[in-house]
Amino acid sequence: MKLYIKYMVSLRCKMIVKEELRKLGLQAVSIDLGMAEVPEQIPDEVLRQLARNLLNSGLELLDDKKTILIERVKNLIVETIHHSNELPSVNFSDFIAEKLGYDYTYLSNLFSTVKGITIQQFIIIHKIERVKELLLYDELNISEISYKLGYSSVAHLSNQFKKITGLTPSYFKKIKKMRTVNLENM
């Protein structure tokens, strides 16, 4: 039985889900972002208890098919941008449609209707969050980050970064360094 879980976006969330399943005597076959699979059908009372336990940890067990599909789109994007070393070699639209087995236009319309932003906007927001993370790590320069995240140029990345954050990547990095210096002087 597959369980779809909202707000499950990190390794810590995976550990919480695994532990909650274990407490209820359930063994997970697999646990991915937004989804856990158990080999057997779960009785309704146990499912309700799992839902309550997950809610106490800030997670939500989903049962509506459209909501589940939107969460799968979101989790696929988050997993791809934040947790994999390589972005897909095809367009994100083709990648998402292929991975989820749905027509991209359908997914896009559903996502926009429910979330109020397009899938493309959601991807850009997460790419910029990943850029900020990589800038803070200070292991890659802006050109390497641009390449890693599939931007056509450093200028394109910089323009999107400024549009979303209001700052240039170099100024964002400078603020981080100034903050570090200020903390060290305390």
Rank of each mutant, 00 (worst) to 15 (best):
V9Q: 11
Q160A: 08
V38Y: 03
A155S: 15
L76M: 06
L157T: 04
E45I: 04
G58S: 01
E144A: 06
S84V: 08
Q27V: 15
I164S: 06
C13D: 09
L55G: 10
P169Q: 15
I81G: 09
T113K: 13
D103R: 09
L134F: 04
S112H: 05
V90E: 14
L167P: 00
L47S: 07
L69K: 01
F161V: 13
Y102K: 08
S146T: 05
I16S: 00
K14I: 06
Y106I: 06
Y147E: 15
L100S: 03
A28P: 10
V46N: 07
G58L: 00
G166D: 13
S84D: 07
D64R: 12
A97V: 01
N185K: 10
L183S: 11
I81P: 10
N75H: 05
E133G: 11
L134N: 03
Y104A: 12
S153E: 04
G150T: 05
L59N: 01
A51S: 14
L3R: 01
P43Q: 09
I145Y: 05
K148P: 01
T67R: 05
E60A: 06
F92H: 05
A51E: 08
S146M: 02
C13G: 03
M178I: 12
D32T: 15
V38W: 01
N75E: 07
K176R: 13
E20M: 00
Q121D: 11
H126G: 01
L11T: 06
E19Q: 06
K148Q: 12
L54N: 03
S158Y: 04
E37M: 09
K23L: 13
V181G: 05
F92Q: 06
I125A: 09
M186W: 09
Y151D: 04
D138A: 12
L61S: 02
L134Y: 09
P169M: 15
K2S: 15
G34L: 07
L24D: 03
G150H: 09
G150Y: 13
S108T: 01
T113V: 07
T80D: 09
I42L: 02
L87F: 06
Y102I: 02
Q121I: 08
Y137S: 14
P88D: 15
L149K: 09
L54W: 00
K65Y: 11
S152N: 10
F172E: 03
H156K: 13
G150I: 05
Y151A: 01
N53H: 06
V181C: 03
G58H: 03
I42P: 14
A155D: 14
K174Q: 11
V90F: 10
N182P: 08
D63G: 13
N182E: 12
K176P: 00
L157M: 14
F122Y: 15
N182Q: 11
N53A: 11
I96M: 06
D103K: 08
H83M: 07
R12M: 12
E98Y: 04
R72D: 04
K23M: 12
K65P: 07
R72M: 10
V9T: 15
E86D: 10
L149M: 08
S146Q: 10
E144R: 08
D44N: 14
K173P: 00
S108L: 02
L134C: 07
E129Q: 09
L157I: 02
Y151P: 11
T118M: 06
L55E: 15
I125D: 10
E133W: 13
Y147A: 14
D44S: 14
Q27H: 10
K127E: 05
N159L: 13
G34H: 03
